[in-house]
Amino acid sequence: MRKWTAQLKKWFADVSNIPEDMVMDLPRITLIGRSHLSIENHKGVLAFSSNELRLAMDRGELVITGQSFVLENILDKELFLTGQIETVRFLDDKKGDGV
């Protein structure tokens, strides 16, 4: 069922030319230089330390690593991180592979 609605959303996004992240609730990650990162549509903070931030996604996790992280602001669906960002990685539910 859930897969079916996801398919429908994807088709709608294709047909209507509306960006996928708006229709399909996909995360939108904006990286400004190396020091500012904003993430929309996250599903909660799993772990936070000064060199790692793990966020829950629709499927899987998003792992950001770096140094001297400060969570400048955190809202329901949005967060804003500052610090030295080194990697941004997606983790699937099953395997530990990412982008």
């Binding site: 909660g44 903070v45 799993l46 772990a47 936070f48 330390s49 000064s50 992280f69 400060v70 969570l71 400048e72 602001n73 955190i74 809202l75 329901d76």
Partner: peptide, 21 residues
């Protein structure tokens, strides 16, 4: 579970900012 606290705060509408470990 500090992260849990953070998430719950956000859900309940308590504003948090400048979080550091």
């Amino acid at each position: 579970k500090a992260e849990r606290f953070m998430t719950r705060c956000v859900e309940e509408g308590i504003r948090l900012w400048r979080i550091e470990r």
